[in-house]
């Protein structure tokens, strides 16, 4: 997830109807959107229905973020040189590694 995509995620939260499902968001996008949602709720000014929708979205985002953190597991890859200077990333710590 790049910062641009995270920012785009925050923008999308502007139109709640078009917001993508929370589960499809990466950590940065979800965090950026939660920050945006909280900011808008604190600013106020929107109709009550919209405030309630924002609130519910915020709850879903928080739960999603907490789940991402709890379930996260470090992924390990290693870069290897192929013929012709090609570079490939293999899964796992590599054959030399045993611990």
């Amino acid at each position: 997830m790049t910062m641009d995509e995270a920012a785009a995620g925050a923008d999308r939260s502007g139109a709640l109807e078009a917001a993508p499902p929370v589960d499809s968001l990466g950590f940065d996008a979800a965090l950026a959107e939660l920050q945006a949602v909280v900011g808008r709720l604190e600013e106020g000014g929107q109709p009550l229905e919209e405030a309630l929708a924002l609130y519910e979205r915020g709850v879903a985002l928080q739960e999603h973020l907490e789940r991402l953190l709890a379930d996260a597991e470090l992924r390990i890859r290693r870069l290897v040189e192929r013929g012709g200077g090609r570079v490939d990333a293999l899964e796992g710590p590599g054959p030399e590694e045993n611990g």
């Binding site: 950590f27 991402l68 953190l69 996260a72 597991e73 470090l74 992924r75 390990i76 890859r77 290693r78 870069l79 990333a89 710590p93 590599g94």
Partner: peptide, 8 residues
């Protein structure tokens, strides 16, 4: 742990 580490 929400990251990938790539060894070069």
């Amino acid at each position: 742990p929400a990251t990938t580490v790539v060894l070069s």
